[in-house]
């Protein structure tokens, strides 16, 4: 079965687009976009074993770091740059997003919501860092470097004058349409560069 976030991203991306998946893991999303949407795609992944798995799925991926590895691409090289469940693991968020917005005409960001009600309850009643199905890690073994809410991300985009073109919010694999920062466990944002606002 296709995970709902993959299905939503595949739904957003126009057929035949050129895509770059940053932090593409074992390449499942890229393979889906290639097979279903006829996309030409590539990815960057930091884990060598995952890169080898990508080859198994028939996608070309290079091992590297999201920070610092996009310099080779011209502006607007890709129709979409995807940062699904990877932005919160990036050290230099601003640089990564700036670069993604430079090389991609649109950037799709999928981030977990660290302030969903389940997490809030744990913080409030237990006084502990939250551990949920969606965020299963303890503070000492989490791969995440940045902890943010969906509201935090919206504020960040406003501050950076990044245009949020579309949003989709999810909780337990279902779409959520209201009180998103409280109810949703993750959000998917389609972003465009500040300079595209006028055009």
């Amino acid at each position: 079965m296709i995970p709902i976030d993959y299905a939503i991203i595949a739904d957003i991306i126009a057929p035949g687009s050129k895509v770059l998946d940053l932090g593409c893991g074992e390449g499942d999303l890229l393979a889906l976009l290639k097979d279903k949407n006829g996309c030409r795609g590539t990815g960057i992944e930091i884990d060598s074993k995952a890169v080898v798995r990508c080859l198994e799925r028939g996608v070309s991926v290079s091992q590297g770091n999201i920070n610092g590895d996009l310099g080779v691409y011209d502006d607007n090289r890709f129709d979409y740059v995807i940062l699904n469940e990877s932005l919160q693991q990036v050290l230099n968020i601003e640089e990564a997003l700036d670069e993604a917005l430079r090389v991609g005409k649109r950037v799709i960001v999928g981030v977990p919501n660290f302030c969903q009600w389940k997490a809030r309850l744990q913080v409030f009643f237990l006084g502990e860092m939250p551990v949920t199905e969606r965020l299963p890690y303890k503070w000492y073994n989490t791969p995440n470097l940045r902890f943010l809410s969906l509201q935090d991300f919206r504020i960040f985009c406003a501050l950076k004058k990044i245009r949020i073109e579309r949003t989709r919010y999810l909780a337990n694999g279902q779409e959520v349409y209201f009180c998103t920062n409280l109810l949703a466990d993750s959000g998917i944002f389609v972003l465009r560069r500040p300079d595209t606002i006028k055009t």
Binding site: V51, V61, S62, Q63, V72
Partner: peptide
């Protein structure tokens, strides 16, 4: 190896790169 990969990418050539442990 990475220098080659970057130069290939700059040309939109299909390239995969892995640094094995």
């Amino acid at each position: 190896s990475q220098a080659m990969v970057r130069a290939l990418k700059a040309n939109e050539i299909e390239v995969s790169y892995v640094e094995l442990a």
